[in-house]
Simulated assay, not measured.
Amino acid sequence: METTESTIKSLLSQLSLLKNEIQKVIIGQDQVLDEILVALLAGGHCLLEGVPGLAKTLMVRTLSQALHLSFHRIQFTPDLMPTDIVGTEILEEDHVTGKRFFKFNKGPLFANIVLADEINRTPPKTQSALLEAMQEFEVTYGGQTYPLDRPFFILATQNPIEQAGTYPLPEAQLDRFLLYVKIGYPTVQEEFGVLNSTTGSKKVKVNPILGGEEIKQLQDLVRDVTINDDLIHYVSSLIRATRPDTTTVPYVKEWVRWGAGPRAGQALILTAKSRALFKGRYAVLMEDIHNMVFPVLRHRILMNFKADAENVSSDMVTAELIKAIERSKVVGL
């Protein structure tokens, strides 16, 4: 038991080292980094949204450099085909026998960390090529199934302001992302740091901290973090209250078209456990749930036309839900 505890402490200390290593390059964006690392520990995928120039691609590339993991970047464009992502069969010849045969040539999806850059710039046909990989961690081609290496982590980026030539992600695809992370502008001090550190000749070296086996150990540990029944009841009440047909919250009935499904509750509990472990705790607190509820529900609550017209966002609905459920004392926490 002592060895196990010492191993856990060593892994947790390496987590803070990992974040420090990334912050050699990425200045600020502390909460964004936390959410990305929480998703990694939980074994899920992240959708990153932010205007151009906020270092979304650099953030993912730096993360890959700080890990002993393979990394591929896929630039999504309107002419990208599913085979450009998954791979394709090529005709080869056996030089000894002269016989020809088809061999599956793996695409860039076969890596531990995959950056799907500007994912909403490719048509749904190509976007859907990621669905099986994201959910089942495998790829099927020509009737043959090929397992993906674990850990497997997709980080997709999209630009919220330039909508010409883009294809909105379908709801089924959005639901496969564990977290929807929004990246905002830096503070005055952070922007000064960015300008000061990126316009000179000094190069920063990022050292790899964790390997694949260590990441898998941490992902297993996340599952062992405890959460009491009261908190599970609270999560269930929160998720069920997002659904207009069953909710008692007027705000939801007015603005929401579709609420979150059971996968949202699973995601909220899993990411709360992951955040607790990331903070060095082995039990989930209410603060973990409140911290993760926004990136978990952001893409799982579908707003109606009235909400779109009046700029009412899913984050605003989530904030109202938290207030309403705490007022109603659903679980007496």
Score class of each variant (00 low, 15 high):
Leu174Phe: 14
Ala116Ile: 14
Leu169Thr: 11
Glu171Gln: 14
Arg243Asp: 03
Val114Met: 14
Glu93Pro: 00
Thr157Asn: 03
Val194Gln: 11
Val222Trp: 00
Lys205Trp: 10
Ser128Arg: 12
Glu320Pro: 07
Ala319Ile: 07
Thr246Tyr: 01
Pro262Ser: 03
Asp117Pro: 09
Ala283Gly: 07
Ala264Arg: 00
Asp315Thr: 02
Lys205Gln: 15
Gly193Ile: 03
Lys182Ser: 15
Phe294Lys: 08
Ala39Leu: 11
Val312Gly: 11
Pro124Glu: 15
Val252Asp: 06
Ile232His: 06
Glu326Tyr: 02
Thr97Glu: 09
Phe153Gln: 02
Ala111Glu: 12
Ala133Arg: 06
Tyr180Asp: 14
Arg223Val: 05
His45Glu: 15
His72Arg: 15
Thr226Gly: 10
Ile154Thr: 10
Met316Ile: 07
Leu48Lys: 04
Ala276Ser: 04
Val312Lys: 12
Met134Ala: 04
Val206Glu: 01
Phe152Trp: 02
Met303Phe: 09
Ala241Lys: 03
Gly143Lys: 02
Gln127Ala: 14
Lys279Arg: 06
Ile232Asn: 08
Lys202Ile: 06
Ala111Gly: 11
Lys216Cys: 08
Ser274Asn: 04
Ala133His: 08
Thr248Glu: 15
Gly43Tyr: 01
Val96His: 14
Glu5Cys: 13
Lys329Gly: 04
Thr57Ala: 12
Lys99Thr: 11
Ala264Ile: 01
Glu92Thr: 10
Lys56His: 08
Asp175Phe: 15
Ile119Gly: 08
Arg61Asn: 11
Arg240Ile: 03
Glu49Val: 15
Ile269Pro: 00
Leu131Gln: 13
Arg240His: 04
Leu277Ile: 04
Ile269Ser: 01
Ser6Thr: 15
Thr62Glu: 04
Ser6Pro: 09
Val293Asn: 02
Leu91Cys: 09
Leu54Pro: 01
Gly332Met: 06
Tyr234His: 06
Arg223Ile: 06
Lys216Asn: 11
Asn159Ile: 05
Lys103Gln: 14
Gly332Lys: 08
Val284Lys: 01
Leu17Trp: 15
Pro295Ser: 08
Gln144Gly: 00
Pro124Ser: 15
Glu213His: 05
Asp229Val: 06
